[in-house]
Design a protein around this nucleic acid. Structure first.
Length: 103
DNA sequence: GACCTGACTCAAC
DNA sequence: AGTTGAGCCAGGT
């Protein structure tokens, strides 16, 4: 049993994602040994307001940006600004930009 | 404690 | 290769 709540762990892992890289909701879930909790991860980040937690770097497993408190368009805008290439269809190449430290 | 919600995922069409 | 539906989980009511 750990002292940190699920939410706290999600936030901590998200903080570790470097600029110019991304990870997926599912990956964070797997890193927490809960491979099927991707949806719960999204629910947690949905409430994030802390700028120290770069939740815009967490995207869907299919390459789409996914949701964002300020709108999905803002999310892709910030990612591009950080050097992540997002094609005209809003798709991000995970093979190239995914942060793999959790493995 | 049952019920509902959602920034998800993946196998199966 | 795009869509669909069922499964799953934490949190809030």
């Amino acid at each position: 049993m750990s002292i940190l709540t699920f939410s706290q762990k999600v936030f901590e892992l998200t903080k570790n994602i470097p600029r110019g890289k991304v990870t997926t909701y599912g990956e964070i879930a797997r890193a927490l040994n809960k491979p099927k909790a991707g949806r719960a991860v999204g629910s947690v980040l949905n409430k994030n307001i802390n700028p120290a937690v770069p939740c815009h770097r967490v995207i869907k497993s299919n390459g789409y940006a996914g949701g964002y408190i300020k709108g999905a368009s803002q999310k892709t805008l910030i990612l591009r600004k950080e050097g992540v290439r997002v094609n005209k269809h809003g798709i991000i190449d995970l093979r190239k930009y995914q942060h793999k430290q959790y493995f």
